[in-house]
Design a protein around this nucleic acid. Structure first.
Lengths: 315, 315
DNA sequence: AGTGATTGAGTTACCGGTAACGTAGGATTA
DNA sequence: TAATCCTACGTTACCGGTAACTCAATCACT
């Protein structure tokens, strides 16, 4: 007990005793077992479970980086989970992670299995759902309105005079944020009297190459498309390279719009039309809110980080 | 005790008892506490600590994905640590993670602080050092010979007739893998009678934009450089875009070589001269070897995943 | 000197599982 | 019929910390 007090610097011991304890620590090569501490106090650990769909999608790595940096600076550890966009994977992961008594959870997306939601509600663990804004989160939420960002992009493209619109993405999941963007985009086009002639949802990750061959597919099925909105910037950059290879002029022959403003956009010969989102900020904010709750303080349940349309030169 | 047997399906109970236990589990909303299990048996957890320098560098996200997928399929969890290339950060992280009784550790790089090495040796936890091949690892190692890959690239460029060489990277750390590549490159150039006229180490992450402005810097300080080797493909792609913007012809006016064959290379108008490395494989192999050791089997201490020079069209 | 407060240290019990052992009662065997 | 074994279930102790309590020695103050 005295040793425990010394090691926690809790006070209630003499300098002589401290020296004696420290000498024994050194002699025995004592290494603390934090499991026991958590266990003893019936407390929570300093683990934070963080689930993201996958690491192949650059936007999530930025979010994850924001989360982990913030958590690390407050002496918390990230326990990673990749759900591969599959709800049952997420459910299993949630159950496993909760059995390790985490201090909190961060989940990407707002769609969870009914059993997962039931478990989460019963777990009494602070929780932040990120990415997609959710007006009635299980606990807390940080994200942006993806539908609105798609809608704004659609409206913007309409003001540019386009009438025949296309979309290329990779998501098949109706509850997905990318699908919300597509829905917003489609709604804006409908409201404005345009026509969404083709929408392509590839079975792939939203990277450069799917943008490349997706554009090829879309243009071959409808050569009259005037502008294409992509799931993210990386896909749009793939499209830009496809057009360059095929001598298709941008924005003369076709307009290209991305989403998310990823790093690659900074080196293109022209400014990509896109939507700016502060991915790192989402992660940081999620971690901050979670840590507030973990420490017993309160936090606003819903935070909207917003987005900005970047007009660019590709439309 | 009987409940414990039922829940672990250990046998030694009747069907009637199982039903009774399960009914109570349901009624009480019982949720297992895995900390207690680990604690009770004086066992290790199913956590695997994985430290990488940062998530901004795409190569590490690929490695991490390979690791986490493999670990998840064997019911282990990744506890993430980002060291920001700082040894003291790594040391702190190692200490923290070890106090959670992980089943194993995966560390990126071979350079660790003396105290970290001492702790690791005393911890009796399976350990894989990845990325950089290390003939005398603390425990196990998976990676490739970065010096050789740089040397091969240098030799290849010499056969192309280049005499004035440049290098652009971001690392300042002598123990870093990228530095090994630079050293191999420099050695090859020296051995072949060429001249490494300029080498630039930017204070940035090795992404697209540093490749862009790094090229600008290097060319303005030495306009006669004939070929530039970049720390990775993303930087090389930044360079390609700089050259396009400046109407500098590739490979007519200047040769560009990358490293790592990142996804962006798949959409460029020409094949980038680079070195192919199977990042995902490094992660998977590291996880596999670690899990072997964790389960008490033995594993070969050192695995070389190798690399392949991709001649490409940019030199 | 007597009283109460303070300080430094030790004791006990507990967190939630599980290993190891104990035991009652029925089945099997000599 | 008695010895033996097996099955199903119960008891005890322990993992490594720490909360809560106890206690002796010292100190401050009337």
């Amino acid at each position: 007990m005295t040793a425990s007090r010394v090691l926690r610097d809790e006070g209630g011991f003499s300098e002589k005793t401290r020296a004696k304890v420290m000498a024994e620590v050194e002699r025995l090569g004592y290494f603390p077992n934090r499991l026991a501490t958590v266990f003893a106090g019936d407390k929570k650990s300093t683990f934070i479970g963080v689930s993201i769909p996958d690491l192949g999608n650059e936007v999530f790595t930025h979010v994850l980086e924001g989360i982990d940096r913030k958590l690390a600076s407050f002496n918390h550890q990230t326990v990673l989970g990749m759900t591969q966009h599959v709800q049952s994977e997420e459910e299993n992961w949630i159950e496993t992670v909760l059995s390790w008594q985490p201090a909190g959870l961060i989940l990407t997306g707002r769609a969870h299995s009914p059993r997962a939601i039931q478990i989460l509600k019963g777990a009494n663990v602070p929780l932040v759902e990120i990415w997609d804004l959710n007006s009635s989160p299980v606990d807390m939420c940080v994200g942006l309105n993806h539908f609105d960002s798609g809608y704004d992009m659609g409206r913007f493209l309409l003001t540019k005079g386009y009438t025949r619109f296309g979309y290329v993405g990779t998501s098949h999941d109706a509850a997905n944020a990318a699908t919300s963007r597509l829905n917003g985009y489609a709604k804006a086009i409908q409201d404005g009297g345009g026509k969404l002639t083709r929408q392509l949802c590839l079975n792939d990750i939203p990277g450069f190459y799917p943008g490349f061959y997706g554009t090829e597919q879309l243009l071959s099925s409808d050569p009259h498309v005037e502008v294409i909105f992509y799931q993210n910037d990386n896909m749009a950059v793939g499209a830009v390279h496809f057009c360059q290879a095929q001598q298709i002029s941008i924005p003369g022959d076709i307009g290209i719009a991305g989403w998310g403003e990823l790093p690659i956009a900074s080196v293109l010969p022209y400014r990509l039309t896109t939507v700016h989102v502060n991915h790192l900020r989402i992660g940081q904010l999620a971690a901050e809110k979670l840590l507030l709750k973990v420490n017993g303080d309160s936090a606003t349940p819903v935070s909207d980080v917003g987005f900005q349309l970047v007009p660019g030169d590709t439309v």
